[in-house]
Nucleic acid binder design. Sequence first.
DNA 1: GAAATATAGTTGACACTATCAACCTCATGG
DNA 2: CCATGAGGTTGATAGTGTCAACTATATTTC
Lengths: 153, 153
Amino acid sequence: MQNLSLSEPLHRLTHAYKSGLRRAIRESQITLPITHIRALKRINAVTDCTAHSIVQHTQRDKAQITRVLNELQANGLIIKSDNPNDRRSQLLKLTPAGDQMLEQIQTLEKETTALMTKGMKQTDVDLFIRLANTLADNLSGGPLEHPIQQEDA
Amino acid sequence: MQNLSLSEPLHRLTHAYKSGLRRAIRESQITLPITHIRALKRINAVTDCTAHSIVQHTQRDKAQITRVLNELQANGLIIKSDNPNDRRSQLLKLTPAGDQMLEQIQTLEKETTALMTKGMKQTDVDLFIRLANTLADNLSGGPLEHPIQQEDA
DNA sequence: GAAATATAGTTGACACTATCAACCTCATGG
DNA sequence: CCATGAGGTTGATAGTGTCAACTATATTTC
């Protein structure tokens, strides 16, 4: 029972990751907060994405997501269209501009990830991801399916 | 080269951890933000702690730390005393109230950690911590010594 | 099928977190 | 002594997290 600290390394890592990514993004003349990026990625990843599916995936408050989506729309990165299956909600899609933006960002994210995992064995990185998912699952009760998250990089 | 996602699990985990801890804290009638808690822990952990050492450890902006410390002082949880080695800075110490508060919080944090690591082997938890530290070190350039972080739980 | 209930999303409000710039005070090295 | 830098404070602003109240539509249940 070593009882090493879990929380401090976690804080440190998240902070370092977020500010590293933010810096990379800012240096590319992009002005888009992290939360907006996560939404873009999600919209790109699932077909017929709705606000609700982003809420589910990110576990963020729906109020926050609403505002993020409105800003993405105002920036011309996404469009909302009527959801034929449910008139309360709208389907979300990337515009060509949004698509291009996302590709740029994915590159930056890959760079940050590469920097972060420098010198580490891929198996260790994979292990880390699996452990992180296990920890998160334990906390959020539900396992929240993470199906070999593909390009969700 | 599986290239599993690193960022999404990380976001999910941090968010789940922070809101889990916040909830536990709130349910104990404590009203203290996470950042304040980290500062308390740091003050408790190092002798002759100054604002600067918290800035170094947490990598937060010194402006933010200044304000956190002022609030902790206003809440009677810490006291600032003149630093005999440097008249620009002050030494930080927990008051008895701060000490008691911290103990309460440590308990809550342990509970949250226990919940989070439920069913995991201790070796896996330790491994996770080491990997997290490695990742953070890679990002922040400097290794920022993490010396078998004892009660930094 | 009408009433009750639940869900998708919006809006307002507010606390917490992150970051930058300007500034003051004191320390340190030439 | 003076220049430069470090420790800390203050002000400003953007981003994030959360709660509550509300609209509109969908679903359940009697």
